[in-house]
Design a protein around this nucleic acid. Sequence first.
DNA 1: TATGTTACGTTATAATATAACATTAATATG
DNA 2: CATATTAATGTTATATTATAACGTAACATA
Lengths: 163, 163
Amino acid sequence: MQDKQIVTPFSPADHQHSSCLKSVLSTAEDCCRQRGLRLTPIRRRVLELVWKNHEPVKAYDILETLQAEKKRAAPPTVYRALDFLQAEGFVHKLESMNAYVGCGAPGHHHTTQFLICHTCGVVAELDDIEIGELIGNKADSLGFKATHLTIEIKGLCSSCQAD
Amino acid sequence: MQDKQIVTPFSPADHQHSSCLKSVLSTAEDCCRQRGLRLTPIRRRVLELVWKNHEPVKAYDILETLQAEKKRAAPPTVYRALDFLQAEGFVHKLESMNAYVGCGAPGHHHTTQFLICHTCGVVAELDDIEIGELIGNKADSLGFKATHLTIEIKGLCSSCQAD
DNA sequence: TATGTTACGTTATAATATAACATTAATATG
DNA sequence: CATATTAATGTTATATTATAACGTAACATA
């Protein structure tokens, strides 16, 4: 129950990222198929690069990688792909870092809160209904209709506290 | 009681901004005096420009104004002043907009949540203990020690809903 | 195949922010 | 007061993040 609130956990030591990545990509493919959208090679590759690990990735780092491996990439190449991936909910932007992370629950409507460890850089994504509701209610009580929340929490993850 | 949570309200129709500004500046002066810091003419002017109204202000707009009125200003002029003002808690940065707003409770330690109307652009600042605590507790329960929260809520303010 | 639409290539530039070092102003200390 | 020290600012250059604008290619479908 509690675990349902965690969309992308801080990875355990035995996290097998290659299978994590594989499942992310196949979910994205399924979603696109269902929605009649094209997960083109560029879009797919950018999604893969955003999910290189569980840390925020910068647009220009993606660009460098693309250029290194296949040329023919300019900033719009990356930003267009990121725009598509964000619009479809496969990727989120961390506003406080100008960086991007993969979404742990693509295809599901959900609220989003990020926990960002400033030591190891790892990001966890939560979908905590209570937080979303509390904020919605507070806003309501001021006559404000909230439509989009940016919630980014910086701190120390448990393994970095241990060190 | 409830009102205490509101640091900068959405301004009422009869809001007298000149007196609002005056009080903001004199509070900043007092704080600096107490802390042995210098609210230099540039810093003071930048604070004034951030508080030009209750909307987010962009760094380069401040720069333009400075250049128009007194020359001898470059990007570092503005960013240094903004850094100082942020460090002292006189100004906040809205991460999701790359823009700056004046703090409604300078000199007081507080949590911060912003409500940003995407129609009129006006920003309200809250200091809602419950939101801060709930998030802190959620993070705690995951073993995460939160040190800094970014909470920016976009939506429609009550007067824009009325229109 | 013709046609419209979507994605991509390409060039240029806009918008946001910082590095690095020289100079000036304020403050502290002998 | 003179001078040393620090803090703030001036200045030039550049890094980083993002978008505009317009042409071309790929794909979908009538």
